[in-house]
């Protein structure tokens, strides 16, 4: 219990710092942080200009992580992400030049603008937490956290990520427009870029690693497991969805809930924690059978969360 309260105390400054940069997005910031704690990767889907990049950069700063950014374009090659072997004339052999993926926090901007080939190079690295080039395996740094942003897929010139690749992201969040009050503050305040430069790390990487290790050990009561299973079962049996949630998705839901609970200083997971992260974790993994197109999150809320009673 003390560890949970302790965790909250450690995370409080980080949250405050983030909220100071990205205004009016407390919930999304918490989700992003929970995603880091659960050792997942984050997919931010929204229109350009709502602060995706700012959030990613702020996260890197606050957590004191090395930061790299790759702008995904249609001519991006896998080597541009992973790195490349170049011939070293002096030593008479090839030398591996590390790509931007070897950062602790990698911002993959507009990931759906790149070709599937470049996308999958990144996604494989995310999954394996290592890259193999010319038969040599290079481990990626720890912590390793990818924030990918993506434009809504109806925009032209995009290669939507296939469902199997979407699964690699623990959470998908949308930022959305700020509300008028915060927008006013944004307009009045300093430039975000310069503000970012002033941020000092609020959580040492060592603490982050410890917190990450704590997440999977956070107490989960039997009735909560019942609840997670009921949600998963409903997604499979209700007939509202193209395919039900996989066991991997169930684990993701549980890990995300544990991270959320830890973030809120709880020593055990509540149904509310599951509900808080469910949309971010499940939204990109389920497809509504009757969905016409576009955003189905509201339906998801009604069809899954509101339909399964809390045990």
């Amino acid at each position: 219990m003390s560890t949970a309260a302790d965790a909250r105390r450690q995370l409080e400054p980080a949250l405050a710092a983030l909220n100071g940069v990205v205004l009016g997005k407390d919930r999304e910031i918490r989700l992003a942080l929970a995603c880091v704690l659960a050792r997942g990767h984050l997919l931010i889907e929204d229109l350009p200009g709502v602060g995706k990049t700012t959030l990613a950069q702020a996260l890197a700063k606050v957590l004191g992580l090395s930061y790299q950014r790759v702008q995904f374009t249609s001519d991006l090659l896998p080597a541009d992400v992973i790195g490349v072997s170049v011939f070293d004339r002096e030593r008479g052999g090839f030398e591996f030049r590390r790509g931007p993926v070897f950062a602790q926090l990698l911002l993959a901007d507009e990931v759906n603008r790149a070709t599937p080939k470049a996308q999958s190079a990144l996604l494989e690295a995310m999954e394996e937490r290592q890259v193999t080039v010319d038969g040599v395996t290079h481990p990626l740094p720890d912590p390793f956290f990818v924030v990918a942003t993506q434009n809504p897929s109806y925009q032209i010139g995009t290669y939507p990520l296939p469902e199997s690749q979407l699964d690699r992201f623990l959470m998908r969040i949308e930022l959305g427009y700020p509300d008028p009050a915060h927008e006013r503050e944004l307009l009045r305040g300093r430039d975000r870029r310069s503000l970012l430069a002033t941020i000092a790390p609020a959580l040492p990487p060592e603490s982050l690693r410890t917190l990450q290790a704590t997440v999977p050990t956070l107490h989960v009561a039997e009735p909560l497991l019942d609840y997670v299973q009921a949600l998963v079962r409903h997604s499979r049996e209700s007939g509202h969805f193209e395919a039900g949630l996989s066991p991997r998705a169930a684990i993701a839901l549980l890990r995300g809930s544990q991270a959320w609970a830890l973030l809120h200083g709880r020593s055990g997971v509540l149904p509310e924690d599951v509900q808080a992260v469910a949309r971010a974790i499940v939204g990109h993994r389920l497809q509504l059978r009757s969905a016409v197109d576009g955003d189905s999150a509201a339906d998801l809320e009604g069809l899954l969360l509101q339909a399964v009673p809390v045990p």
Binding site: L270, P271, E272, Q275, L305, Q306, A307, V308, P309, V310
Partner: peptide, 9 residues
């Protein structure tokens, strides 16, 4: 209580 309302909520 709502069907799917968490206890703290």
């Amino acid at each position: 209580a709502g069907v799917a309302e968490g206890p703290l909520d």
